[in-house]
Design a protein around this nucleic acid. Structure first.
Lengths: 242, 242
DNA sequence: TCACAAAAAATGTTCAACAATTTCCCGCAG
DNA sequence: CTGCGGGAAATTGTTGAACATTTTTTGTGA
């Protein structure tokens, strides 16, 4: 009783650890995830690692190719747009469900969360980013729709991964104000305003990352690398011309 | 090469078999799913059965209670409403994505599918119901959004299970006509009409099942059973007053 | 009839071994 | 020197058994 949770926490622990490592970019997208190595690192057998990887694959955070093992997912821009489109629809659904039906206790929870966001904002810490994301999870939770909550959680995770690939460090400055405005609109029951605020907010966070290079950018990249000075040493260049 | 699938198809096969059994109501909601029995029936070990059950639980088709094994999911009315709300939002998203962007080849696929629906309609067969559901999966597929397709598939499965619990055999008569109208609206690019048609269509199929008995219906049920003639023998009633 | 205790069954969890596939490295022809 | 098999090593897919824990049933006594 002093330390070990008697339940099936080991698989869940591996799942959570890998999940955090991926979302914090400690494991870069595309990185291989060998079962043996993970198993030995956690001091368990591959069975548990496999279960955790399977669940992560279900959440879209790792990619599982047959007989080729697992690797951190590296969604394409097209997949990123797909994820974002669905997230927008789900968050609009949450807003619709909450608009005009926000009870005082629920509003208090939202306000308290925004308060915490504002407090963590000046630090520019990772805490600030985490809290900004959790605001959306809280919205989904308040709808009382458990499935919606699950979907939003999954979609938000995928969006984090996508932002780590294509996004720049988003300024959480406006987020706090936009969250406040959304709460006010929910309280007032102004459905069009709620939807507009949420759409604008999501576009501000995610939209910009998905705009650039819609067509094939291969040419542009190659053009930059066609010059005489290599910007970064290729992984396995045999230095044929050095 | 004559009979055995050399791939990892066994777990997938069990998953598919159980899934079909549940959706076809061969396994009633609430039915227990003992690992030992399933394993021996399929001639495999519990490990694979467990994996299949876990995946089915992820799809919401089976319920997994700790130390109590798996059973076919029996969603409450509240959960049913949650699932339906999300399905509606997802299908509206699909319609939005397709509206005005339907290419001739895509329209042809939809029309061909409706044709098949109409052909199967007079039979009143299970085929008719299956085709009506697959129309929605086809819509999701045509958006090219793989994640949306996955979600719609999962939500449609859950809705099938819900209808088997709360719905009456839906008349597929109107469905064919409504599908045709939706295709026309998609082709015309009339977004409001598309959304209205889809909402009306989904409400026709699912909405009615979720309306009755919104408050606790325990009393009504008990009232029916309070009479002198038991309609069906309660499983473990101790017949204290009989 | 009820309550309690022990036994039996079922589940949760872990591990080790074997089979199949992929990947990597090395020698060899062109 | 480059490109192409061939084989070894590594990784993954899959299975079954064993043990701990929990639930359910059974049996006994008051």
């Amino acid at each position: 009783m002093t330390e070990n949770p008697p339940k099936n926490s080991r698989a869940a622990a591996i799942h959570e650890a890998l999940r955090r490592a991926i979302l914090e970019q400690a494991l870069a997208p595309g990185a291989k995830l060998p079962e043996d190595l993970i198993a030995s690192q956690f001091g368990v057998s591959r069975t548990l690692v496999r279960e955790a990887l399977g669940r992560l694959a279900g959440e879209g955070l790792v990619e599982l190719r047959h007989n080729r093992g697992a690797s951190v997912a590296a969604p394409s821009l097209a997949e990123a747009r797909d994820v974002f489109a669905i997230r927008r629809a789900m968050e609009l659904l949450a807003v619709d469900a909450l608009c005009g039906r926000l009870e005082p206790a629920q509003e208090a929870r939202l306000l308290a969360h925004v308060e915490a966001e504002a407090a963590a904002q000046p630090l520019g810490d990772a805490t600030s980013i985490r809290l900004a994301g959790e605001f959306h999870l809280l919205l989904a939770e308040l709808t009382g729709n458990a499935l919606l909550q699950r979907y939003v959680t999954e979609l938000a995770s995928r969006c984090s991964l996508i932002l780590s690939l294509y996004g720049r460090p988003h300024s959480a400055d406006c987020a706090v104000e936009e969250h406040r405005a959304l709460i006010a609109a929910l309280r007032a029951g102004d459905a069009p305003a709620c939807r507009a605020l949420m759409e604008h907010h999501l576009d501000a966070v995610m939209g910009r990352a998905l705009l650039p290079q819609p067509p094939g950018d291969m040419r542009a990249v190659l053009a930059r690398y066609a010059g005489p000075t290599p910007p970064s040493p290729p992984r396995r260049a045999k230095a044929r011309s050095a």
